[in-house]
Design a protein around this nucleic acid. Structure first.
Lengths: 219, 219
DNA sequence: TAGATTGTTAATCGATTAACAATC
DNA sequence: TAGATTGTTAATCGATTAACAATC
């Protein structure tokens, strides 16, 4: 019950994974409870780590019984500030922006894409689900008016830092970037990156490259 | 020069970030060299960490001068097994699959999408860049024939584990999943996850939720 | 009660940082 | 030479794990 004090980032980072699995269990199974052992087994995480992680925030379980799934979901939802839905802006209406604006996975997980922007005038006006692509010049006004605090960036590398600066200036406090560069943001602004190439390069280290030997090449 | 022994995953995980920035420097700047201090400053990483990380693999720098950018790129490319291009299969031709199949960012970073599959017969035959969407029943034969060892999964949750099993059985050794569930794979198969919701939930923990008080609601 | 499982402690393990001799 | 910067060491810091009393 170390409820006070700084929680390590790495612990916070695992909570959404726990929450995701718990929701899955709530939806598809009849069990009302789970244990650190069971949850850990499903996620490839040790039971001790799960208990330790949760203990940073309170005592959510019962000896002998484990954790009530619904209750734990409720607590994690609260801890992660997901009781209210967060409006999200998507910047860039290319293939990826299109995929994000139409992504069903945001529903019921705390997020809702409320606006989409693109620089390209040919894209402005296009419908994406319930939304209409807006011009990039409307970015500041819209974000301010809608009180948007989160944004997803799916723009070309060349304009990513500039768009970031504009978003931050407009009040965005958390950014998810699909652009393959490091972004500079002021203290207090969260940034998370998703670069498929970086993820794949991390894996190829562990793979054996196909040794195209002279003998093979000559066959 | 601790070239032998196990390299920590976390160290391997930073190499693609270094490589990405180095390539950017090589492309857009005139400097032939950089230092751990300079590189670290650009990436928000300490210089000591960069030197330590690189020292696991060899001595790539020169006292007083730093690192020759081209040489370091070459070495990292070799370490990460990126000298040869890896063929990649994309499974799922929805919005996201579409975005991935058309993604230009793979070029020159070691990867090449060589096939795309979808279950939906309406999608089979559709052109995506140079590729044509194939039926899911062609998965095993194509992957085997093309010697594909990496795959990106962008299918519905309901079929993700089944598709994973089929890919692994067909010889895929590394998977990048955009599906929001934990996947079970045999020992030796690499998996990397990308779930935008998990990334955003990690950030909302640090954000202050909008306190919709009674007073506010009633205005 | 007997079995199961929590929350917590202490030990272990691993990663980061500061400092500096070596040297370009 | 003087300044810069490496690679490495040792110290510090942080995370994970094993173990167990408490208790449902």
């Amino acid at each position: 019950m170390n409820v006070t004090g700084e929680i390590p980032d790495i612990v916070v980072g695992r909570l959404p994974i726990y929450l995701r699995e718990l929701n899955r269990m709530a939806r598809s199974e009849d069990n009302m409870t789970t244990s650190s052992r069971d949850l850990g087994h499903r996620l490839g995480i040790s039971s001790a780590q799960i208990r330790k992680d949760l203990s940073h925030f309170g005592e959510f379980g019962k000896q002998g019984t484990g954790y009530h799934i619904g209750y734990l979901i409720d607590q994690l939802t609260q801890i992660l500030h997901l009781k209210e839905e967060w409006g999200v802006a998507v910047v860039g209406a290319g293939y990826l922006g299109h995929a994000l604006a139409n992504y069903r996975g945001f529903q019921d997980r705390g997020f809702h894409v409320v606006c989409v922007f693109d620089k390209d005038l040919d894209k402005v006006g296009i419908k994406m689900g319930d939304l209409t692509v807006q011009g990039i010049d409307e970015l500041e006004e819209t974000i301010d008016r809608m009180n948007v605090e989160m944004a997803i960036i799916a723009v070309p590398v060349s304009v990513a830092q500039e768009i970031t600066d504009r978003l931050v200036k407009a009040g965005v406090k958390a950014l998810l970037s699909y652009v393959p560069i490091h972004l500079n943001v002021p203290e207090g602004v969260q940034v998370s990156y998703s670069d498929p190439v970086v993820q794949m390069q991390r894996m190829t280290y562990y793979l054996t490259p196909v040794a195209t030997t002279a003998a093979e090449s000559s066959t």
